[in-house]
């Protein structure tokens, strides 16, 4: 499989150094460069099985965006987004994007992991026009830049999380669509339960400047359960095969 040079694009995940060391094969999705899979180590099929058990995946270069302010929820609804009712819950859109409500005045929008939907780009563009003067109490938050985006998947994920996160993330306590703003390995993080097909999945959004530390902590924590990094192709397969 042909791979792309991760420095051929200008927007680069801080984890690229680690990915390259792990023989990552990079692939482009909607203009964003992600690890397709880790070539020398496992095939996509093996990574797919790995992701069902326990795996971590870097999605930091995929689009995402935040909105904040008293006017933000109603404006987003005028943009045809279906917002969850309760704070700290997330809702999947028909486009595949995920809309996470962090408070009554704060929403986070994550691209689908195929980068097929244009929601984030469209909203970003629209908001810049509508809210140039910031007088309608709707403010864009650069979540795509400030926060990394990691996915942890697999049946062992919640058990692994219990080593580094003080919140009960087990399936029957933290359901698909639940959100916890909490601390993971002493780092502030937003944890979103978002299953990929029938496989339990968690998104972690955390300060991007600390992502290498967090990545290392997660790898350390998942070692005893046989977890390891996988590329985005394995995650995509989890969704496709469901």
């Amino acid at each position: 499989m042909a791979t792309l040079d991760p420095t051929s694009v200008k927007r680069r995940s801080p984890l690229n150094q680690r990915h390259v060391t792990s023989h990552a094969l990079f692939k482009e999705f909607g203009g964003n460069l992600l690890v397709g899979h880790y070539g020398d180590i496992k095939s996509i099929q093996e990574e797919y099985s790995q992701a069902q058990m326990l795996a971590i995946c870097d999605l930091s270069t995929l689009p995402r965006l935040g909105f904040k302010g008293p006017g933000a929820p109603s404006w987003l609804e005028t943009q045809k987004l279906k917002l969850p009712t309760l704070p700290n819950t997330a809702k999947c859109q028909h486009t595949g994007s995920l809309v996470a409500k962090l408070s009554d005045q704060e929403v986070l929008i994550l691209s689908d992991i195929f980068a097929l939907s244009n929601d984030v780009a469209t909203l970003s563009h629209k908001a810049e026009i509508d809210h140039q003067n910031y007088d309608k109490q709707t403010y864009i938050l650069p979540r795509g830049d400030s926060h990394c985006w990691l996915a942890v998947t697999g049946t062992q994920a919640s058990e692994m999380f219990s080593k580094i996160c003080g919140i009960d993330l087990r399936s029957h306590k933290f359901a698909h669509g639940d959100i916890a703003q909490t601390s993971v390995a002493k780092t502030n993080a937003v944890v979103i339960r978002n299953d990929l097909g029938s496989t339990p999945g968690f998104y972690i959004l955390s300060d991007i400047s600390g992502v290498e530390f967090l990545w290392d902590c997660l790898l350390d924590a998942m070692q005893e359960y046989g977890g390891c990094p996988v590329g985005v192709s394995a995650l995509q397969r989890l969704i496709k095969s469901s």
Binding site: K163, K186, S209, G210, F213, A221
Partner: peptide, 10 residues
């Protein structure tokens, strides 16, 4: 495991 968060610039 003594977690000491470290931050790095891009």
């Amino acid at each position: 495991r003594s977690f000491y968060p470290a931050r790095r610039s891009n």
